[in-house]
Every structure is written in structure tokens, then in C-alpha cells.
Amino acid sequence: MVDWKKSVSACASTVTIRNISDYVDISAGSNSPIDSFYNERNDLLRSINPGYASSNPSIPPLVLV
């Protein structure tokens, strides 16, 4: 029998995170704080170019935060 409670949108899957450790890494921080900032900033800015930013407008705001 069709269940009206499931009539408006997809049902939730039963996904679980296989291994949360796969989502993290041990940070090896040995630079000065300003150099850590520069390194991370440069990695972020390198990941996006003008063409990519205009074809994927939802990405630059995420890079900003």
C-alpha cells in the first residue's frame, strides 16, 4: 500500500561514516603563524581560477569563509 507519509520527498538513506579518521589528518605545524597563514592562503587561492570561479559560482563564497 502506498504510504502518504512518503509522498512529498525522497526517503533518507541509511548511510553512516565508514571511518571518521579518513576525514582528518595530523597537522604538522612547524612554521611561524604568519607563514602558516600564507601557505594555507596560497593553497586556497591556487585551487580556483577566473574560469572555474565563473562556471562554479557557488565555490568562491565557500573559499571566502
Binding site: Y38, L45, I48, S54, P57, P60, P61, V63, L64
Partner: peptide
């Protein structure tokens, strides 16, 4: 919010 490439560069300059 609408952040494009040039706004992102400008924001990075502000943070820097």
C-alpha cells in the same frame, strides 16, 4: 551573497 574571482582576491588581500 555573490562572490566572484575578483572579490575573492580582494578579500584575500584584506585578510593578508
Amino acid at each position: 551573497i555573490k562572490v566572484g574571482y575578483s572579490e575573492l582576491q580582494e578579500a584575500a588581500e584584506v585578510c593578508t
